[in-house]
Structure formats: structure tokens, C-alpha cells
Nucleic acid binder design. Structure first.
Lengths: 107, 107
DNA sequence: GAAATACATCAATATATCTTGATATATATC
DNA sequence: GATATATATCAAGATATATTGATGTATTTC
């Protein structure tokens, strides 16, 4: 029950749905890129990423100073279907600003 | 987005998961039966049933004074998969007390 | 090893959700 | 049509979750 509720409550937030959709669209991104693209203050973003990770939706890979988040693969059937729902939602995604590659990342 | 969040937030409650599982196991039951079996006060149960109904999981059929709730059919893929998850949760269901049939329903 | 950068966590406040008891509505029975 | 029963809704307090700003940690660079 606990794992199910953890999974479901992770989905139960507009911000986290947006993050999932954004990562699903753009592959793996560092916190810095997400923060700039989604225009979120860092602590808020970090909290939501943690919740999504602990609910089994995301994985993190550390490369030097950066933490790259991406959709975990493979996902089980329920999470896959949830992601599929999110993929079909009518959301206007902000443009990707990938500062980590250009060395402009100054937060 | 709103419909998705409504669906997901309906799942995000232990009481409602139990109700779904109970109805999935026992077919359609009136509020009175659910109230007795699950040992819930009436306003609480009624509220959760409404949330599940409005999230597309349940349907209601009125027969005289009684309102019979059951899992809506057909469910879409996401809701079906959610129900499948719930079906596999390790929940100890209380025994069904079907008072409405015996005329003992006095709440 | 000191400074700067990227990220994580904490504490306080704001907001949403759940529970409970009271009240409202609708159907059946006398 | 008055009473009783089944269900729905409302209002207040309790609990959980989100946001923000501040602080902590770890890695890189000099």
C-alpha cells in the first residue's frame, strides 16, 4: 500500500507532472538546466526531483558537479501508463535552456 | 491536466484504495453495506465515494432508497492499470456484511 | 586549502485535504 | 402528510503537503 501511495502521490502535483513531461521530452537534464528552463527556485525543484526519484520515476547520474536526472528505464506497467497519460496532456512546455553545456550555468 | 490530477488525487488516499479494492472484490454494494463492512461513519464514506465517482472509477445506481456503487466499466487503460495495482496490494479486507439484503440496515 | 559553483536539506509559513458532527434531501411506510 | 431511513452536503478543526529563504555539503578551480 505504501509504495503504491508513494507512487500516486508523486503524480499528484502539477509541478511534478510538468517535470516528468519535460524530462520525457528532452531526455536527461541537469538540475541547473531544469531550473533555468522551468523557472523554479532551486530548493523547490530539488524537492520535487527527490519525490519523483523516490517514487521510482527518475534516476540520477552524477557527472562532476552536476546531477543529471532522467526518466528511469524500464518502468513497470503502471508507471509506464501514467507517463503515457502525461504524454498526452495538453501542456505548453517552456523552451529548453541548456546552460550546462555552454558553461553559462551560474545559479 | 485537471482531469489527470483529479484521477490521481482520487487514488491518493488509503481509504479510497480500500474502497476500490472492496468494490472490486465484491461487486456492487450499497453505501449502507460499505459503511457497515468498512466501519466508517457515513459522511466520511459518502465523501470518498463521491471523489471516486467524479474521478471516473465508480458508477452509482439508485434502487429505491439505496445507492449501489460499483467499479465503472469499461475503464480506460490508466485506470485499469491503477486498479490492477490495487488488486495486487497486500491489504487485509474486512469481511463483507451485506445488511441491505436482510433488511437489517439500520444506520 | 580557500573560494566558487551545483545541489540537497531544513525551518517557517501558506495552502490543500481529511475527519467529524450537524444538517439537508429524498424515498418509503404508516 | 407525518415519521423513519438512506444518502448527500456543510462547517469547523486537525493533518498533510507545497513554497520560500536560509543553511549545509560536495566538487571543481585557483
Amino acid at each position: 500500500m505504501d509504495i503504491f501511495l508513494k507512487t500516486v502521490s508523486a503524480l499528484n502535483d502539477e509541478t511534478r507532472v510538468l517535470i516528468l513531461r519535460f524530462l520525457d521530452t528532452h531526455g536527461d537534464l541537469c538540475v541547473c538546466d531544469l531550473q533555468t528552463s522551468l523557472d523554479m527556485i532551486q530548493s523547490r525543484l530539488s524537492r520535487h526531483l527527490k519525490i519523483l526519484k523516490e517514487a521510482g520515476f527518475l534516476r540520477v547520474e552524477r557527472r562532476g558537479t552536476w546531477a543529471y536526472y532522467s526518466i528511469r528505464s524500464p518502468l513497470d506497467r503502471f508507471r509506464t501508463e501514467a507517463l503515457e497519460e502525461i504524454r498526452h496532456l495538453d501542456i505548453t512546455l517552456p523552451p529548453l535552456k541548456k546552460l550546462s553545456q555552454t558553461g553559462e550555468c551560474t545559479l
